[in-house]
């Protein structure tokens, strides 16, 4: 009870600040998401391809170093640090330079960069409890982006490893609202290519239950403001570009299913 009184108190006193930089504003180097071709796999030595989506508008293209490490999730949700060093089944996947200008210059320095392949070690579910085996454990992949040895961004994503017969698959974006390089308020909306998946899981007592994914969207823009930048897939939001219109702008939307599955769309204006 006491914990939840604290949680409620958090909601009671939570407040934002209009002067903080906006979540939806794209400018400095930022990772917007990491796509996995298979968000959920078995522990049978499967390979997953991961593709980061980044934006670095303010720096107009530069070379960054990407270091990728992986390990079994040390327990981030239970308070452990996001750090793979010394953790079980550690792998240094790659450390490479990426020329953002060459890769993204044509799309306003925003978009997908090099994919990397990760082989999930086999038998990592061995000796785990039946609930953990069925629901899965996380194989963690940490990306560290730096320039000249100075860290720009650290980010991570999980690859779910489970014995579940039906694995999670990525949602897809079917279409989105048309927007133009205009100072007028414009609607932002998106249609997913399919309905959210139903999936099964074992609850804490070991009983099998089903649930349904909830799709939600994250909108970003290089110009102006987005009214509500994080919305459900069936919710419309609004964008107003800067009144002093730039020559070009970019709007990005990420679709996530809440279980590691995602898709994205970059709209370059005009």
């Amino acid at each position: 009870m006491r914990l939840f009184l604290s949680v409620c108190l958090f909601f009671l006193v939570s407040c934002g600040d209009d002067n903080f930089k906006k979540y939806a504003a794209l400018s400095e180097f930022r990772v917007l998401g990491i796509l996995a071709d298979n968000p959920e796999v078995s522990d049978t030595n499967e390979t997953v391809s991961l593709t980061p989506v980044v934006s670095d508008i303010a720096n107009e293209g530069r070379t960054v170093t990407m270091k990728v490490e992986s390990c079994v999730d040390p327990g981030i949700a239970t308070g452990e640090e996001v750090n793979c060093e010394g953790e079980a089944l550690y792998q240094l996947i790659t450390e490479e330079n990426i020329d953002l200008n060459a890769l993204l210059g044509a799309s306003y320095y925003t978009g997908a960069i090099n994919s990397i392949d990760i082989t999930v070690p086999e038998n990592i579910l061995a000796n785990r409890s039946p609930i953990e085996q069925f629901n899965g454990i996380d194989y963690l992949v940490i990306f560290n982006f730096s320039v000249g040895g100075e860290e720009l961004v650290r980010t991570f994503r999980r690859i779910k490893v489970s014995t579940k017969p039906e694995k999670n698959s990525n949602p897809t974006i079917s279409s989105s609202s048309d927007i133009s390089l205009s100072a007028n308020e414009q609607a932002l909306s998106l249609v997913a290519g399919e309905s959210p998946q139903e999936f099964s899981f074992l609850d804490l007592t070991g009983e099998q239950k089903t649930s349904k994914e909830v799709y939600y969207l994250s909108w970003f823009t290089s110009s102006g403001e987005i009214e509500n930048s994080q919305v459900y897939v069936d919710e419309e939001t609004k964008i107003t570009l800067d009144s002093n219109l730039p020559n070009e702008a970019v709007v990005v939307v990420f679709l996530r299913d809440g279980r590691g599955g995602s898709d994205f769309l970059v709209k370059k204006l005009p």
Binding site: V7, I76, A77, G79, L204
Partner: peptide, 25 residues
Amino acid sequence: LPFFDSDNGGIRNPFSLGESRAGRR
């Protein structure tokens, strides 16, 4: 609900960080 980590130095992790764990007893 996801797991609540109380050993967080008074800096709460985001609610979305942990996977929800469901059950009734």
